[in-house]
Computed example of a mutant assay.
Amino acid sequence: MKLSADLKAFQERLGHRFSSPDLLIRAVTHPSMSSVHRDDNQRLEFLGDRVLGLVMAEALLKADPQATEGQLAPRYNALVRKETCAAIARQIDLGTVLKLGRSEMKSGGRRKEALLGDAMEAVIAAVYLDAGFEAAQARIVALWGDRITTVKADARDAKTALQEWAQARGQQPPVYKELKRTGPDHAPQFVIEVALETGEAEKATAGSKRHAEHAAAKALLDRLEAE
């Protein structure tokens, strides 16, 4: 199977030329474009998440031989979470080559954080299946670059940080509430609100409840810390 010109260019940005081009095509195919004759990237995403996890765990151990498990865990979480994967995807302009259904494209799918993060994991799996673990490891380390050594020792996800902020002030944990769900089953959109017992609240929209919760927590935390 031959690659289109845009996918050939993407290979250069990624830094890996595929011996099996069909793996790359599958990695960039969103479920909204899947069919009987076209596989989507969900299974690759599942595998890529595990490959990324192993590479990052090993990279962090090498980067800081003296770090304790308690220090390594939050760094690891910061490096493998969807937001970071999405940032890497933007770095190599992955969104421009995604194969999306019409509804997903109209809703701005090429810019969605969850979608980009999932696709990045799928691309990692495609490299792994195409050329083995060492090739995937080399691409991950190169793409994540300085993030591996500069990730903050106290890096936490937004939900954890917001909960700690509330508890430090003697408040109950934040409460998350689903306000709305729209879109088709293959591409839902969730509107989530997070609120503190003192009344402060923020809303966010994303393609999964988890990502919407994190986005809402980050928005509220940013506002609280700016006050």
Results as ranks from 00 to 15, higher is better:
223 R>P: 01
169 R>F: 02
173 P>D: 01
24 L>D: 03
212 A>M: 07
1 M>W: 03
9 A>C: 00
225 E>N: 08
27 A>K: 09
167 Q>L: 12
48 G>A: 02
93 D>A: 13
49 D>P: 00
61 L>S: 12
73 A>L: 15
104 E>H: 14
37 H>I: 13
69 E>N: 12
93 D>H: 09
117 G>I: 08
79 L>S: 04
212 A>I: 04
18 F>T: 10
221 L>D: 04
196 L>C: 01
190 F>I: 03
165 W>N: 00
213 E>F: 02
22 D>I: 00
72 L>D: 04
114 A>P: 02
87 A>P: 07
66 Q>E: 14
188 P>N: 09
131 A>N: 01
179 L>Q: 10
199 G>Q: 05
26 R>C: 08
96 T>L: 11
116 L>N: 06
164 E>C: 00
179 L>I: 03
44 L>E: 02
136 A>D: 01
219 A>F: 02
15 G>E: 08
80 V>P: 06
38 R>Y: 07
196 L>K: 00
31 P>G: 11
50 R>S: 10
55 V>M: 07
38 R>P: 07
146 D>M: 08
215 A>I: 02
81 R>I: 08
160 T>H: 05
50 R>P: 00
123 V>P: 09
46 F>I: 04
41 N>Q: 09
158 A>D: 09
79 L>F: 03
192 I>T: 01
102 R>T: 11
25 I>L: 14
47 L>V: 12
191 V>E: 12
142 A>N: 05
86 A>K: 06
